[in-house]
Every structure is written in C-alpha cells, then in structure tokens.
C-alpha cells in the first residue's frame, strides 16, 4: 500500500511503530526531526500527489466521524431498542446490516459505537497534546534542569505497560467515557512530550532561531513564532498515529468489558458480543461489521499518518 518507490522513502516508511503498538506508552525514545527547515509553498507544489488511497482513507475517516456526530439525527432506531420480531436477522431493507440476538439494529449500534472510539481517540490525544506538547515544546527549547526533570519523568511513566496501568486505574476508579478519556489522555502525555521535545530540540539551534534570538526576540516569541510552526507537522503526524494507538487500547478495554459500561455500544464490546457465547455460529454479522469498520479505520489513520510523514519529510528512529 505505501508505495515506497525510493529507497530514502522506505527508510522512514518502515519505522511505523507507535501506530500498531497498543503499549505505545512504551515507545522508548523517538528522535524526530524534519529535514527541510520550513515548508515553502514552491516545495509543496512540486511534491508528488497524495494519491487515491490517501483520499480514500480520508473519506472513510470522514464518513465515520460524520456518522458518529450525526448519529442522533440520522433515521436510525435506538441502538438499544429490541425488535423481537427480528432476532438475528440478516441484512435487509429494515435493518441494513441486520440485527443481533436481541433484535437490536446492528447499523445503529455500529454508528453509536463509533462515538466511543472516536471520542476517546481524538479527545484524549488532544488533551495529551495540549499538556505533553506544550511541555515538550518548552522543554526542548529551554533545556536545563526543567528538561532533565521532565525527561526523566517521561521515561519513568513510559516504563509502565500502558494496558496494565489503564486496567488497574479503571478497576479502582471506575469506568465511564469521561474517566477512560482522562486516563488515556494522561497516558499519552509522556509519549507526545517526547516526540514534541525531540522535534523542538532539533530546531532550537537552527540558524533562524539563533537569528531571532540575537535580534532580541523573547523566549515566548521564539517558541511560538519560530519553533511551533516547524513542530506542528511532526505533532500532527504523530498525534494521528497516537490516535490509532489509543483507539486500539480503548478497543482492547472494551473487548474485555472494561471500557464504557454495557449496554452502551462500542466497537470493542460489539466485537466481544459477536464472538462470545456461540454468537459466531448463529450470527456472524454482529462481529463482522465492527471488525471490518475497526480494521478500515485503523488502516486509514495509519495510511494518512504514513503519507503525511512522507510529505513532511519526517525522519524518525528508535533509540
């Protein structure tokens, strides 16, 4: 799928890690830097197009987001309404994707279930980016004792296997959409901190920053006017890949019955429902739709992240 035609592209193209690994809190150290200093518009025009697959991926993510946002106004039955006249119905005119063993509409459950994945995925990463990104930006530019302390702290936090930490906190604190989002938001802070810090660090001593400094610009101005615009592409790309990672963790929790409580649908608990208690042999659709949707969602996010990284010319490496 990623057409790594040139060797230089393959070099970075292979290092997709954070996107797959649910324990992304464990990515040890990411060295992130961009090759070109700034994005000038001539360059953008000269670059090769994103390609069909990229837009297809954007389309799928957009469709899922739109359906989730409009779930209440779409002409869908209540996701928990049980139609006793149509138990385990295959896809038909009334239930486009069929129904489950309790007669609930699978399309409706799928669309409402998407809300959980998307809210948890995007909100927690936005939260993590706000905290971790800001700290990373400042820490990378300023250096010094603050940097040493934050750096060490992020290492310690990353030493936890994310899934175990999240399960433990959920167990003691309780499971609700809000709490899960907060927990995962906090969990990605050290990761995004490291990514943004590494990127900020790589710009801190570039000529244009030094030039700004010698002209008497304040630190705040340098960080937000000179460094931030250069860090944004890295932050967006990694933020997106982290969204995929968080969606995987939430899906794992939901599959184990530890995310948002039933009967609220989420893709993870829909998959679990469709797999357990012999459901597979009676009605495979319960499992099939969320599995396909989840696969396509993760694939699309990975693909978009991959293309953005190629476009922004981001080199990343482990260690």
């Amino acid at each position: 799928m990623p057409d790594d035609r040139e060797l230089s592209d393959t070099r970075s193209g292979g290092r997709l890690l954070g996107d797959q690994v649910p324990g992304l809190a464990a990515v040890d150290e990411l060295v992130v830097s961009r090759q070109s200093e700034t994005l000038d518009s001539d360059d953008v025009l000269a670059r090769k197009p994103f390609g069909f697959l990229f837009w297809f991926a954007c389309g799928w993510v957009g469709l899922v987001v739109l359906a989730a946002v409009l779930a209440n106004v779409l002409p869908l039955p209540n996701p928990n309404f049980q139609n006793y006249n149509a138990l385990n119905a295959p896809p038909n005119m009334h239930h486009l994707l069929g129904t489950d063993d309790l007669g609930r509409d699978l399309l409706s459950r799928l669309i409402f279930g998407a809300r959980v994945s998307l809210v948890v995925g995007f909100v927690s990463v936005a939260f993590g980016m706000l905290i971790g990104g800001t700290l990373g930006l400042i820490s990378g530019y300023k250096g010094g004792r603050l940097d040493v302390a934050l750096n060490a702290g992020s290492f310690v936090l990353l030493a936890f296997p994310a899934i175990v930490a999240v399960i433990a906190i959920v167990a003691f604190w309780g499971q609700s959409l809000f709490k899960i989002t907060v927990i995962l938001g906090v969990a990605v802070v050290p990761l995004l901190f490291r990514v943004v810090r590494a990127s900020s660090l790589s710009f801190a001593n570039r000529d244009f920053v030094i030039a700004a400094r010698t002209m008497g610009a304040t630190s705040a101005r340098i960080v937000f006017r000179e460094i931030l615009p250069n860090v944004v592409p890295v932050a967006i790309t990694f933020g997106l890949i982290t969204v995929a990672g968080v969606i995987v963790i939430e899906g794992t929790l939901a599959f184990l019955g530890l995310s948002v409580a039933l009967p609220t649908p989420s893709w993870g608990n829909l998959i679990a429902e469709g797999t357990s208690n012999g459901a597979l042999s009676t009605n495979v659709y319960i499992m099939l739709w969320p599995v396909i949707s989840m696969f396509l969602l993760l694939l699309s996010i990975n693909l978009i992240g991959d293309r953005l990284r190629q476009r922004f010319d981001i080199r990343e490496g482990l260690l």
């Binding site: 995987v248 998959i271 597979l280 696969f295």
Partner: peptide, 18 residues
C-alpha cells in the same frame, strides 16, 4: 504487513476463531 498493522488482537482473533 502495512495491513497487518491495522489488525490488533481483538480484531484478528475473532476472525481467526470464526
């Protein structure tokens, strides 16, 4: 393998069982 990156265990395990 790019596709496999989008197949976490809770997605692929049910398919395998099925």
């Amino acid at each position: 393998t790019f596709g496999m990156l989008a197949l976490p265990p809770f997605v692929i395990a049910p398919i395998m069982v099925a």
